[in-house]
């Protein structure tokens, strides 16, 4: 069983064969893959191909599943839950509902107008960019199943806890109100047929690849730089296990950055290989994906400053707690 799983993780999801193939190709071209330059080129070729292959396949499958959970339907489903159950359902549906950050304002207004508590909406907004089915599979391929599962679980816990806390703090009154739609809505959205879902998944895959390819290449380029050019001692002194501020630095640097989770993983992969603690890496990935300057600017149009600050504060604090906890318990994942 272990052998089967290892094969799945390293050869199928990890595509170690691809790494070996690029290695042979480069040696054939007389590039020394043991040298710094050759190793960077090999890492770059292997990682970009691997991510693009997984990305394309995964997004297709995921989009097909997502076509069953349009935001309109998610809104209806969430209306049936109360209390903590609503936050949990919201965090889970956040991972399944197709959602682009540019759509966060209408979604926010729609959820609020439907009478959903503001904390439930925030559980959705936290989990949606953070935890993603595609990212989960990619994380298995890079870090293994244990770390991938840990990432998903703490991401969901953060979304549920963050949303619940926002409700408890009585943030409801800091939401900017928009008038609700009239009852007689002119809305025509029939259930999709199988063929339509197929077309939809294809469109989504193409659209996503077009949207994220630059982030992926950028992320892999930075990863290659970390792998072979930046001295290990530097990385160790800033982000290493012996620097008590490593998690704080990773979080503060990651927050304003706007990148897709798929672009963040290669950077995390390279840092991990250089001995940066697991908690520090989780914090970095979460900070980059969960909070970003563009999304904050957008949210500021629908929530008042007080709520926005509370949201940023809670998520930042959560990411710090996750980082330090995992650095302490990191040995469990080795």
């Amino acid at each position: 069983m272990q052998i089967v799983w290892d094969f799945l993780q390293h050869q199928i999801l990890g595509m170690a064969w691809l790494d070996a193939a690029f290695g042979s190709l480069l040696s054939f071209l007389r590039v020394d893959t043991a040298g710094r330059f050759g190793a960077s080129v090999q890492f770059f070729l292997y990682d970009t191909s691997k991510i693009f292959i997984l990305l394309t396949l995964l997004i297709f499958v995921i989009s097909y599943i997502q076509s069953y959970f349009p935001p309109e339907r998610t809104k209806k489903i969430l209306g049936r839950f109360r209390g903590l159950g609503a936050n949990v359902a919201s965090a889970l549906l956040g991972t399944l509902t197709p959602f682009c950050s540019c759509s966060s304002i209408p979604l926010f207004i729609g959820f609020t107008n439907a009478g959903l508590p503001v904390g439930v909406t925030f559980s959705f907004l936290i989990s949606s960019p953070l935890v993603d089915l595609g990212a989960f599979i990619l994380l298995i391929s890079v870090f293994g199943a244990k770390i991938a599962a840990a990432y998903v679980v703490v991401g969901l816990v953060l979304a549920v806890a963050g949303g619940t806390l926002i409700d408890r703090l009585g943030m409801e009154r800091h939401v900017v109100r928009f008038s609700a739609p009239s009852d007689a809505l002119n809305f025509e959205q029939p259930e999709m047929s199988r063929q339509e879902r197929h077309t939809y998944a294809k469109e989504q895959t193409l659209g996503t690849v077009r949207r994220v390819w630059l982030y992926v290449i950028g992320g892999v380029a930075i990863g290659a730089l970390i792998h072979n050019w930046i001295p290990v001692e530097w990385i160790q002194s800033v982000l290493g296990k012996h620097n008590p501020f490593s998690v704080l630095i990773a979080t503060v640097v990651g927050i304003p950055m706007y990148a897709d989770i798929f672009g963040t993983i290669p950077i995390a992969e390279a840092l991990y290989a250089k001995g940066v603690g697991l908690g520090t890496i989780l914090s970095f990935m979460m900070a980059v994906t969960a909070l970003s300057l563009p999304s904050m600017i957008m949210l500021s149009k629908v929530v008042k400053a007080r709520l926005l600050a509370t949201f940023i504060g809670i998520v930042t604090l959560g990411i710090l707690v996750i980082g330090y906890t995992f650095n302490m318990l990191g040995f469990l994942f080795m």
Partner: peptide, 22 residues
């Protein structure tokens, strides 16, 4: 946009009827 009941953009409406969202 909210008044038209749209919660996922971009959306298309023809003669006031929402035809597609997100």
């Amino acid at each position: 946009i909210a008044q038209m009941g749209v919660i996922a953009t971009p959306a298309l409406a023809i003669d006031g009827v929402v035809k597609s969202t997100g």
